[in-house]
Structure formats: C-alpha cells, structure tokens
Design a binder for these strands. Sequence first.
RNA 1: UCCUCCAUAGCUCAGUUGGUUAGAGCAUCUGACUGUUAAUCAGAGGGUCCGAGGUUCAAGUCCUCGUGGGGGAGCCA
Length: 479
Amino acid sequence: MKRTEIKAVLQQGDVGAKVKVMGWVRTKRIGKNVAFIALNDGSTIKNVQVVVDTTGDFVKLLENVYTGAALSVEGNLVESLGSGQKVEIHAEKIDLLGKADPNEYPLQPKKHSLEFLREKAHLRFRTNTFSAIARIRHAMIFAVHKFFNDKGFYNIHTPIITGSDAEGAGEMFQVTTLDLSNPPKDDEGNLNFKEDFFGKASNLTVSGQLEAELAALALGKVYTFGPTFRAENSNTTRHLAEFWMIEPEMAFNDINDDMDLAEEMLKYVIRYALDNCMDDLEFLSKRQQDEEKNKKADERSMELIEKLNFVLENPFARITYTEAIQILRNSKPNKKKRFQFVIEGWGADLQSEHERYLVEKHFKTPVILTDYPKDIKAFYMKQNDDGKTVRAMDVLFPQIGEIIGGSQREEDYDKLYNRMKEMHIPEESMWWYLETRKFGSVPHAGFGLGFERLILFLTGMGNIRDVIPFPRTPQNLEF
RNA sequence: UCCUCCAUAGCUCAGUUGGUUAGAGCAUCUGACUGUUAAUCAGAGGGUCCGAGGUUCAAGUCCUCGUGGGGGAGCCA
C-alpha cells in the first residue's frame, strides 16, 4: 500500500478509507483497551492520532514504541471520538521502522530550552518549534525567488570563492590549499601565494554585490541569493559567520526605486507566509507568548500574526539621517541621558539603541533611513551634491534592527575612483569594477537582505542561531 | 573583542545566614484507572552539585583559576 503524508490525510483524507502513514512518535498514552500515539512526519506541524487496540497482538510492539521511534501504520481513517482532532487512524498493521531508546533519546514530550536544543541540532528538527521554522524558512526561500522571477529579475550565481579582498564588508575567511604547518615563503619572507591553488590569496565571499552590479549593467535587473561568510568575532543574537543573503541590483534605478523594491519585497514575503504558513505561525505565536508570559505587559512583543499584519498594512517611514538625528536629539531618552551613547550632533553613527528608539518608540513602524554621512558608509555609494552624504538606505525593523542595507551606487568613474583612493581601496584589484563605470555606466541601485534576520522577524525567535539549521559562530562548528 | 549573568538527577528548575540524610515536576520502571490529548493517581530507582585549587571544625553555598553556555555592546545583514 502506498504511503500518504499526514498533511494530506488530515486535509483531504476520506473517512472510512484505508490509509498508510509513516512518521515519528511524539507521544504515546497507553490504556487498558486502547493506546493513543501522536505521529508526525514533518509534512505539517499537526500530528495524526493513531488508535491502537491494546487487547490484542499490539501489546508487545507497543512496549518498544516511545517518543522518537519511527512507525509505519496502516489502518482505517475514521472520525475521532475524542475532541482534540477531527479524524484518527484505527491501526490494523504497525511496523516499528526505527526504535528510540527512551534512556538515550534526549527529546521528551515537554518543553526543552532552546540552548539545550542548540546542542542537539541533529535532532531539533523533530520538535514543533524547529520543524515550523524549517518549513517557514523554505517557504520564504521560495517566495523570494517567486517575487523576483515574477518581476523579471534574473538570478545570478556570484562566486563563493573570491580573489578580491576589497569588498569592504568585513573580515574574510581565507581559502587555501597551502600546507599551513610549512607554508612557502617568498624572498622577503612573506607567504608566497603564487604557490597557492589560485596563484593568489583567496577568500570566501562577504558579498555578491560587486559581481551582481556587473550583471545588472547588462541584464537590467538581477538578484543573488547565496551563502555569505564573515570572519568577524561577533557574539550576538543576530550575527552568524555563515549566513544567506539576498542582493538585488537594478540598472536605471535610483535610491527611491530601491526603497520601493525593498518595501514591496518585504511585504510580499510576509504576505506569502501569512497565506501559506498559518499553522506554523500560529504555533510560533503561542510559543512566543508562552515564553514572554513572565515579562511585564509593556515589555511583551506584539502578537506575531498581528505584528506581521501591522507591517503589511502600514507604509514604512522614510526619513533622512539628518532628520533622524533631529528626532533623536529632541527625544526624551537623549535629553535625560538615558541613551548609553548620547547624540551630540551630526555625523555620529547610530547605535542599536537609537535605531530601536526610532522604530519601536517614535514611528512604531519599520523605518527606512537614507542619506547617511559618507564617512560611515561604503566607498561604492553614490555621493550626494552636498559633498557630505551618500545615497544609502537602511531598513530598520523592530527588535532586530537593520534587516536591509542598500544604496544607489556611484556610477561616475572619477567620483568612484577618488573615493576609493580616499578610503585606501586597492584599485588594481578592482579594475573590473571600475571598468563598468567607463563603458556605458548608468545609474543603478541595490540592497542586501540578511535572510536569517528576515526569518527571525517572521518567526518571533530571539536568537539567529535558532533560525538556521546548523549555525556557524565563533568557536562553534559542530554538526 | 569588551561587559555581565549562569552551570545541582536524562530534561526544566528549587536549595535560606556556610551546618546533620541535596529536593520538586517531567522522563524511565511497577501498580491502579482511563476514548486519551504534554492523560491522571500511588509508589520505586536515578546525583563526582561543571573541573582544579583554596578558606573553614564544616562548602552545592564563600574565594581564585579554568571550561562550557546565556544576555548586552561593538562590527554588520
């Protein structure tokens, strides 16, 4: 008999029909006449209840059925006598596919801490929380590709190994095949990368942006969605050494088009989650509320689904950096010196506390900040006529802060070249980037979206290590 | 990298001012009961109190160092 997934059984199973399901046991309740097994196969967060006759031959088999065991069950799909579910399966045939010794299997039908489950990352997919996150993560990957495809963007695979060390987005992981216990040296005693695999120093990419720009300046609209690596010693709930980034890049577009795209895209994928992941979102909402029930009322998060709808229904606030500084200088926490970093004047970089004030207290909606001082932003951003600011735009979200960083790019060869000189970017390794400004240069813009930060927001989780299956962070490379 | 907090049963945690035999819930086992919903009830087993050193008549509790982890900051997505 052919297996049916539990999602299909629960949604469109014919009552009275015979079905076969396979899955992992979540709980077993054994009684005098019948036992109940909650079975889950990952197709949905919902379990199917298997009812087993304990007066017959199943008794012996049930002795080996514990939380975590894998079963194949054949039986009749019937209307449930109990109140917790509409239908259930009356088992006629049960095969124990894989045992799970309860003395060794670490997951129990109870609440585990996220820290504990992080150390059991190989098994945490089997919990409601982590399977829900995995399903939502998939849906968001799909929604991102669908969004860009439907808008006529082309997906570009930018390189993962790069010879450029000037992307300027952070510390890089070096890639080498040299013998590190006895590395070759040149005449001056420095490492001789000519003997390395590529004949030069090579690293893992910190951004696909520069290559995406090359493609955009021929194909019009492109995006990347790939792994990104940062060797920063960052130990926070929103940084990973290996994460996934989405980077659209559009020719013939300015910073306003860039903001429109960012807002439209975020709303599109949030809508997609609400339309396609409601079971998982509802579970995660309850999880978050349960976790925060000991907090004071004003410290609790907005209910997850309400929060997502709120973002959909309200336009993002769009203000310049200069306006933000004005608001912050006049804000209560600044006047009362409640900020750890008091805003003194124009030019200061905004700290997380300032971004959170703007988003969570002042505007109470996502905020797009533009036109930052050029000295705190990257070399490739388009310089404004004031000589002080660049056309950068950061999208700030409640709780997680910067979810998107983007800009209009400097398309003028001389301005770009001079800025690279000022910022000590080695132009000889960037000749190919500069050439695009020599041949048919046009205004263009793009941004980078941290995929895991998006998932943090959508799931209400608090730690980025819980929204990627196998997180890579400093001093942590298990699994 | 900096600041800060934590480490007690398989899991989640309590453990008073340093004081006699270290507790609870869940899980496991035994029994009862039962169309149950993380079932319920009664009982049992289960501990190198993270590691090393120190103070003390006496350390789970205090001190030092180490290890592991959480949270915050910076860097950023």
